[in-house]
Structure formats: C-alpha cells, structure tokens
C-alpha cells in the first residue's frame, strides 16, 4: 500500500511561497493514498496557469496540456483506460473562462473524472488580470477601474448542468479538502471540487483571512442533506457561493462509461487491435 509520500516527487514547485496550491497538492497526495491507489494507477491531467503545473508535482502519470482543455484530455484518458483513476485540475481561468464550455459538458457527460479547480479569483501566471471569479469592482491590471462583469458562480452552473457531485473547500482546511477529494475519487461519475486557493501575490482582497471570515462550513448544519438538489441550490445562493463541504451528490445516476452501449468494462487500452477476418468480411457485406 502506497502512503502519501509515494505520491511525492523531487520537483520543486514554482509557486510563490504561501500559495494555496501547495495544500491542494498535499491533499491530492493524501487522498490518493487514503483511497488505496498506487502511483501508477493515477493520472493527473492539468491545464495551463500556475495551478496547471500541479500534474508535474505529484508522483503519478500526468499530462500538462493546453489552456482550458484539461477536461477533454482527462475524459479521453478515462475512456481509453477506465481502470485508471483520473484527476483533472487547473485554475478558475482555465476551467471557468477559456474552458467553461468543456466544464459544462464534462458535467453533463458524467464520465468518472474528479475535477479539482484551484480558484484564486485572479490570473496569476500572466501577472494579475481579472478572472470570471473576480468580484465586481475588483481592480486588476486589466480592470483598473474595477471589474464591471458579474461574478460567475460555478457551483450554481454545475448544479443546473446536471452535476452528480459538487463540493467546495478551502486550501487551509487540509482535513476537509482531503476528505472531499477522497469522496470525489470514490464517486462513480464526474465530481467537481472547487477549492478557494488564495493567490498571495496578485489578489490582496480574497486573502486567507478574508476567506476565514466569509466561508460558511456545512458542518454548521447537521441536518443538511447533500442528496437534495433544491436545498443545495438554496444553500449556495444563501451563502453567496461561500459554502464549503459536500454540497450535492447523486449516487443514482450511472456514469457515461456505464451508460454507453457496448462500451467495454475492461480497459480499452489493453484490447487486441487486430480485427478477425470474419469480422472484417461481415463489415464488407454492407457495401455489396
């Protein structure tokens, strides 16, 4: 059995000291070990941006692709080898701006992929422009007078797109975050975990202290039922999207790979490629 240490490698992250992404990395490593994975059974697919580098900092298979496309790549990996555990990851710009189309459709498709978004409400790697998650009035290099676009609510969008697993956490709360990632990895279908992961360099508004003051932890509501979609939507709206915990889970809906007619239960990547002569002749008869 691998421990979280087996999921570490010797690459030094290029994140700023204090970046929230360090804890997300640690939480992924712990969760992977806790659910009983070996490093080679995990594939971490990431997008572009500061957080996109995360796939290179975890000892597992990993692909660091192009901006906004971690989800379709991750879905391709899962379709090719459903025996792998697949994590997709990236920032809020990656997932909710350039990649928003893929996010919504990955949610609808419900392939068994765990999507972890490191949400810092800003573009970090390009040195401080507004993101779809920035608050209205937020001043950045690209919005010197303050952002005039409304803030996107990924949790509401996920629910309305038919998500089967929606969670939110805060990178400082390693215990909650690890538990939620474990739950996501164990969920049979697509799971979205949005993680408040402060940018200490470019976002001086949404700081660690600010999050601590504003977060509403679901632990406060012992009667909360995460299988109730309406309650989930209400809670998100009531808390202005600041709720953390497992917000919604639908355990009934089957994953895409289980619904696709004829789709193999075993890893497709292990299949023999050669067609039999008999099968080939059968295919040809249609054209006669």
């Amino acid at each position: 059995m691998a421990t979280f240490k087996e999921f570490r490698n010797n690459v030094k992250p290029n994140w700023c000291p204090g970046c929230g992404d360090f804890s997300v990395q640690a939480a992924i490593q712990r969760a992977a070990a806790n659910v009983g994975l070996e490093p080679e059974q995990l594939a971490v697919i990431s997008g572009i941006g500061c957080s996109g580098r995360i796939s290179g900092y975890i000892n597992a298979y990993g692909l660091h692709g192009i901006h906004g496309r971690s989800l379709p790549i991750a879905q391709g990996v899962k379709l090719a080898n459903r025996e792998l555990t697949v994590i997709a990851s990236g920032g809020d710009g990656d997932g909710f701006a350039i990649g928003m189309g893929h996010t919504v459709h990955a949610i609808r498709r419900n392939l068994d992929v765990t999507y972890i978004v490191m949400d810092n409400q800003i573009y970090g790697l390009t040195k401080g422009q507004t993101s779809p998650r920035s608050a209205e009035g937020f001043k950045t290099k690209s919005t010197p007078e303050g952002s005039i676009e409304s803030t996107l609510s990924p949790l509401e969008i996920a629910l309305s797109a038919g998500a089967t697993f929606v969670a939110q956490s805060f990178s400082s709360d390693l215990k909650q975050l690890t538990a939620l990632i474990e739950a996501g990895l164990n969920h049979k279908g697509f799971s979205l975990i949005n993680v408040f992961s402060p940018c200490v360099t470019f976002n001086k508004v949404n700081t660690y202290d600010w999050f601590k003051e504003n977060i509403v932890n679901l632990e406060q509501f012992p009667d909360y039922d995460p299988s109730n979609r309406i309650a989930a939507m209400t809670k998100i709206m009531e808390t202005n999207g600041m709720v953390t915990g497992l917000i919604y889970q639908n355990k009934e809906r089957k994953s895409y790979e289980d619904l696709a007619v004829g789709f193999k239960q075993e890893a497709l990547s292990k299949q023999d490629l050669k067609l039999s002569r008999q099968d080939f002749d059968k295919l040809l008869t249609e054209f006669k």
Binding site: R69, P72, A80, N81, H105, A260, F263, Q271
Partner: peptide, 25 residues
Amino acid sequence: GGTVVQTEDEIAAVTMAIGANYAGV
C-alpha cells in the same frame, strides 16, 4: 467494445483524442 463521443466542439474532439491516444487507445 469502443464508442464515439459527440463532443461540445472540435477543440474537445481533438484534445479528447489526444488524451485517449496518450492512454493507449
């Protein structure tokens, strides 16, 4: 044993194909 996925756009189509080829299909 395989399938066709109708994706949301051609960018998803090609990147999904890259992911699947990377993973060996």
